[in-house]
Design a binder for these strands. Structure first.
Lengths: 227, 227
DNA sequence: CGGGGGCTTGAGGCCACTCAACGATAGTGG
DNA sequence: CCACTATCGTTGAGTGGCCTCAAGCCCCCG
């Protein structure tokens, strides 16, 4: 076998346009919008999946809970991302707005009907599901086998790729969210970030600690082992 | 949100028939067979994905490696399972025969061509990908948040569902394979199994330790927290 | 200006890992 | 058929990385 040297292929930002859906081309596909306040639930696990969502502004976390409250965040959805796309009839995660978030809504049934007749839309649905699968597969490797420092480094690289505006990352999520995404505690995440800060690999900007700058991408990349 | 009380929906055993593919109905889809000896590689990560596979006899492990050798097994493929189905052009895992394994092969391109014209085949491809995604999502929760005992219990329940022949599980994989699937070490897996044995929850049959009987499914289920 | 939430940092503990020894089993070759 | 060997699994002892618990700071926000 070959050793992978490609970068982490998490889902790229998609758009409804990529699905072949626009208000113009498909007037029957209603594109409503809705805004959720910070911390509110968009849908719950096992609830019927009647809608598919796209983040217009803000950020969303998707997670599962164990009965005793342990939480695993499966993905963060940033501006442009599509989420809530299920094949079955139920959502498999709970989705919450991390900050005030506006989403576009599409009725799932109408999407299915379009996919039925349009092979390209159908292919794009498969492609999006595959992207999600790929992200989950890489995340299993992270959760199962990487150290805390490697996890945090991988997280920063992923976020850098997905939301950087010219070198600075305004992270919408809290340390607890990051911890529940990486399978760590918030203290361990904080310590890892402090270590990266000490070593001059990242910097903090502004009053709170959620604005992070990557000062040494190269060094950070060496911490995120080639998978 | 609601608390999930459903059972772990890992991919059910599928068949090429479910894909809408049989030798009779689609003579153009070649269904060759091939046998791999124990421990040999079926395909490697980043290799071109020209074929899709179905396990006829035996068992297969799919895994990723870090550069220093740490391994994460993403899935075990048992009799009837389809694996190696990629949307992109490259495999994302390395697949190896755990024991001597016979697989059926389908040319990916021919499958794609059938899917192009047959909406049902197309839907089934999406459905299979979704099943894989669902398994990965549940596995992220296990890897990120469950204790060693909970992981092993979940593993036994999954295997029981997938390969039990009347109460006895002839596990094809080693302790190391189980460990690399659960994000643990082989010693920890062994200790967890010993504890389950002490408590009368499982039993061992025969000379080696790979034949396991579930003596108390109910108690085992309480260890695998409702997710 | 007081309260609360988010973040950092320290101290101590624990669960899983590491290292090691040992027994059992299956495969190999004489 | 029987050593011989390699592999696999179990078990013990000790370590260590991450977790737990706690204190304190800062910032935001009423």
């Amino acid at each position: 076998m070959f050793v992978r040297i490609t970068t982490d292929p998490t889902p790229r930002p998609t758009s409804l346009g990529e699905l072949g859906i626009t208000s113009d081309s498909n007037p029957k596909v209603s594109l409503n919008e809705f805004t959720y306040k910070k911390g509110t639930e968009i849908y719950g696990e096992t609830e019927p999946a009647d809608y598919v969502y796209q983040v217009k502004t803000g950020a969303v976390r998707s997670y599962k809970l164990l009965s005793d409250g342990r939480r695993q965040i499966g993905a963060f959805h940033l501006v442009g991302d599509i989420f809530g796309l299920e094949n079955g009839n139920e959502h498999r995660f709970t989705a919450e707005a991390i900050v005030s978030t506006t989403v576009r809504l599409i009725k799932r049934r109408s999407l299915e009907m379009v996919a039925e007749s349009d092979a390209m839309v159908s292919r794009n649905l498969l492609s999006m599901t595959t992207d999600n699968l790929q992200h989950a597969e890489n995340h299993m490797l992270l959760l199962g086998r990487k150290t805390s420092l490697e996890r945090v480094a991988a997280f920063l690289i992923e976020m850098d790729r997905r939301l950087t505006a010219a070198g600075v990352m305004p992270l919408p999520m809290s340390r607890r969210d990051i911890a529940d995404y990486l399978g760590l505690t918030l203290e361990t995440v904080s310590r890892a970030l402090s270590r990266l800060h000490e070593h001059g690999i990242i910097g903090f900007i502004g009053s709170n600690q959620r604005q992070i700058v990557l000062l040494n991408r190269r060094q950070l990349a060496t911490l995120d082992l080639q998978n």
